[in-house]
Structure formats: structure tokens, C-alpha cells
Design a protein around this nucleic acid. Sequence first.
DNA 1: CCTTTTTTGTACTGATCAGTCAACTATTAG
DNA 2: CTAATAGTTGACTGATCAGTACAAAAAAGG
Lengths: 194, 194
Amino acid sequence: MGRPREFSDHAVVDAAMEVFWEKGYEAATTQDLCDRTGLGRGSLYNAFGSKHRLYEEAIRRYAATRADAQLAILADPEAGSVRERLRELMLGVIEADMADPGRRGCLALNAATEPSGRTEAVAALVRRQFADLEQAICHLVTLGQRTGELPADRAPLQVARTFQSAYYGLRVLAKVTDDRNALLDVMEGALAAL
Amino acid sequence: MGRPREFSDHAVVDAAMEVFWEKGYEAATTQDLCDRTGLGRGSLYNAFGSKHRLYEEAIRRYAATRADAQLAILADPEAGSVRERLRELMLGVIEADMADPGRRGCLALNAATEPSGRTEAVAALVRRQFADLEQAICHLVTLGQRTGELPADRAPLQVARTFQSAYYGLRVLAKVTDDRNALLDVMEGALAAL
DNA sequence: CCTTTTTTGTACTGATCAGTCAACTATTAG
DNA sequence: CTAATAGTTGACTGATCAGTACAAAAAAGG
């Protein structure tokens, strides 16, 4: 009982996620968060406690929406062969990153990199996202090796981890370069290395 | 003429570099910079103009010291075969990153990622460092292919770019993980993919 | 209706921010 | 020596920071 909230938690966290995604943790001000969520300070703090707790929620929300959508493509047999799915993963981020003038990149990667907001809680959230992607790629590599689509001469986990690293490196490069060919080279090279 | 400076520019920029490296651009305060450099606010601003200009100098300094040292190893024939040198590159950062409790990682990568200080000037400095590393790796791959140490069935630039991406991905992963084996897997996989 | 509970909006807090400024100091030129 | 130039110092600026206090408002139970 009591007065009901006038907002949807999801919508507010989505809006906060956008702010942190654009500006990073430290540079995002509580005023920015109020403006974008449409909430007053009182409501924001009543609901989320602190800027950092809202940051954690934003990272969770990123995992539950953007990151999970990528995992779904990787896990979907209708998305094509193993190579096709991994190509789709990289091609998707190349196009998305290049199309974004703000060069926001990947929120989890940003959170991993920014020293300021990186508490153990945040690091754990990021670690989980990294582990989920590693697992999804590893599962795909294992599948590919079993069906004969990929050579089976190396440990799937090692192959997956290297591919994942190339993926994150790709997103780092996309932060500062406009050279699509360079990013496509990374993709082609990573696929050729499977 | 006039009163001489009481400090060495290199030493001051080195100290500032440490601050930005530890905290990132936004979270580093001018007070931090004064404390670590030993300079008063007036001297700092007289010599460097603004926090952001000092940031640019710090990134240049990083390139001239840390990054160049890595390039030197890659370019040094006495450092071993192509594979050995590339292994040394990755092994070195794995050990360095794991040994650093602050998980500072690579300053250029941090600067690429942090939205806050990423002006076009900073992006250009980072781009140059990325390009220098790409070139050094590409040169090595070309060499390896010529001597027969590496298979010559793929374009050296593509191979180099993919390796470079795995390298930066490695540094991202090292920000949040303590799993040395995961990082070593990335390295072994990247070397196996050459 | 009144009480209880929760949310909301806003004014406010002390701290801290990047940057400035003027007085002072050290140096060289003449 | 004096004048000119450049560096240093620390107090100061107005703005902005994350977070709080509190009263008004909106709901439910009685």
C-alpha cells in the first residue's frame, strides 16, 4: 500500500543505461539521470539508492537486453552455420559501432575499462557477461568441430577465448577508427582462424 | 630569460600519466595532478594550459615510453623468432596486468574507451598508437611468412589486425578477470592462428 | 472521513570541481 | 644596480557535484 510509483522500473533503468552508455559512469551526473529518466531526485534516490546502484542496474539491464539478444543469435540454429553465426556477431557490431556517432561501443566493455565506477560488484557483473559470451562461443565451436564444419585440432575453449578476444578488440578499435576495412579484416581473420 | 622552471617537463608528465592511468580522465582531479606532480595549480596551468592538454601530453608520453618499448621488442631480431616475439608481447602484458592490483591496463585503450576525455585530438593520438602496433605486427607477420616460419596463405595485414585485436581483447579481459589460464588461452590461440 | 504508507518535487547541503588571479620570487639583459 | 620577463604560490571564483530533508500528494485500510 501507499502511493504507487508513477514510472516503470524498466523504462527508467533503460533511460539511465543510455546515459551511462553515452557518458560513462563518472561523467554521468545525477542531473543527467533525472533529465533522461524524467524522475525527480527524490524519486530516483528513493527507488535506487545511489548513482552507483543505478549504474549496476543499468549494466544488468544491458545484459538482459542487448547482450542477451546477441547470445540468442549465436544459439539459434536458424541463424545459419557456426561460421555464419559468428560472422553475424561481428558484422552486427561493426555496422552498429560505425553507425553510432557517439561511439558508445559495448557498455560492459566500457564498464570493465573505466576505473572510476569499477567496484567489485560492477566487475562481477561484467565478468558474468564476458563468461556468458565465452560460453556461447565455446558451445558453437564445439558444435562446429563435431559436425566437421571446423577443424577439430584445437581445444574449443581456447579457440573460443581467442575469438572472443578478437571480438572485444574489434570493439575497442571501433571506438577510434572509421576504417571499416580494418574492422572487416579483423572479422575475416578471426573467422579464418577458427 | 625570466625565472627558470623548477621542474622537468618529462617528470611532471610522467606523474600526470600515472594519475590518468590509475583514475581515467574524468575522475582525475586537478588536485590529484598537483599532488602527484608536486606542482602548484598556477605552475601546472602555466605550463600545460588545461587538464585536457595535460591528458594529451600524458598519452603522448605513454606512447613514447611504454608503447615504444613494446614496439622495440617486436622489432628486435635478438628477441627471437616471430612467434617468440609475439608471444613475448602477450606474455608480458598478461604478467604486467595480473601483477597490477589497480588493473590500469593500457592507457591508450583506456583513453579510447572513456567517452569523457575522448576529443578528436585524443582519438587521433590513440589511433596513431594503434596504427603503430598494427604496423609492427604486420611487419613481423610479413617477415615470418617470408622466412617460412608462418604459413603464407593469408594476407599479412589481415593476420596482423586479427592478432592485434586479440591483444586488445586480452587487455580488456584482464581488467576484470583473475583467471590467468583464460588469458594464456587467448595467447596460445592467437599464436596458433598465425 | 482519518490514519498510515509510500512517492514526489524541490530546496538545500557541504564538498569539490576546473580554472583564475595577483602578489611574490627568481632569473637575465643592459 | 634597474627593468623586463617568466615561474611560483595559495587564496579565490562561480559552478556543479552526489546526496538529503521535508512537506505536499496520492494511494489503501479502517
